[in-house]
Computed example of a mutant assay.
Amino acid sequence: MNIKPIKTAEDNRAALARIEQLWDAEPNTAEFDELEVLSTLVEAFEEANYPFSPPDPIEAIRFRMEQLGLEDKDLVPYLGTRSRVSEVLKRKRGLTLTMIRNLNKGLKISLDSLVKEYQLVN
């Protein structure tokens, strides 16, 4: 096992290729240990160099609607009236705490996405 720190994108690609080769390694073997170490190194490199940021609330709502096959009118129980749904989806009205709670509980949209700041349109 010849493992070194991952410092560049090329190092990361090489580590990912090696992980693919080791993917079916049996536990309690040198190959499995190498797989675990490389996976940890890749995860640390990617978190530092390719940070993930949750989508803005409207993108998250629209994505969830698409996943569930929902239309705008289906959001009335979570956001209020049809006009309020329209205003929120067009970014003319911000989400209230009650709306955020309803969307999180009813549609299982991540709170991280729902509470993220976003630009309203006037």
Rank of each mutant, 00 (worst) to 15 (best):
A60V: 03
L22M: 14
P55C: 06
D33G: 09
T8H: 07
L95C: 08
T29P: 03
P57N: 07
A15L: 02
M65I: 01
S83T: 05
L97C: 09
I100R: 05
R18M: 06
F45R: 06
D112E: 10
D74Q: 01
M99G: 04
A9T: 03
E59C: 05
R62W: 04
M99F: 08
A9C: 05
G94R: 01
T29M: 08
M99V: 01
E87Q: 14
R62F: 00
E117W: 05
D11I: 02
V76D: 01
R84N: 06
Q21W: 09
L38E: 11
G106W: 09
K108Q: 10
K7V: 01
E31H: 09
L35H: 14
P55R: 05
Q119M: 12
N102T: 00
N102F: 01
P5G: 11
R62I: 07
E31M: 07
E47I: 06
N104S: 08
K4D: 07
T8Q: 07
Y50I: 12
E26L: 10
E87T: 00
S83P: 01
K108S: 14
L41Q: 03
E66Q: 11
L70K: 01
V42T: 02
E31R: 12
G106Q: 08
R64D: 09
S83I: 01
E31Y: 08
R84P: 00
A60Y: 08
E36K: 10
F45Q: 06
P55D: 05
D112A: 15
R82A: 14
G80L: 00
K116P: 04
V37K: 12
V37N: 08
I19H: 02
K90H: 11
N122Q: 14
L22C: 09
P57Q: 11
L95Q: 00
E46I: 08
V85S: 02
M1Y: 09
V42R: 06
V42P: 06
I19C: 10
L16T: 03
G106Y: 05
N102C: 03
V121Q: 15
D24H: 14
S83F: 09
A17G: 07
R13H: 02
L95S: 05
V115Y: 13
R64S: 04
D56L: 13
L111H: 10
Y78K: 07
M65N: 04
V76R: 14
R62K: 15
E66M: 06
P51G: 13
R62Q: 14
V37P: 00
M99T: 03
E66S: 10
N12W: 06
E87N: 08
S83H: 04
I109M: 06
E34N: 10
K105A: 13
F32P: 05
L79I: 14
I6R: 13
R91F: 04
L111Y: 15
L16I: 13
E46A: 10
D112Q: 12
N2Y: 09
K7Q: 07
K108I: 00
I6C: 11
A14C: 01
V85I: 04
V76F: 02
E46S: 09
V121S: 15
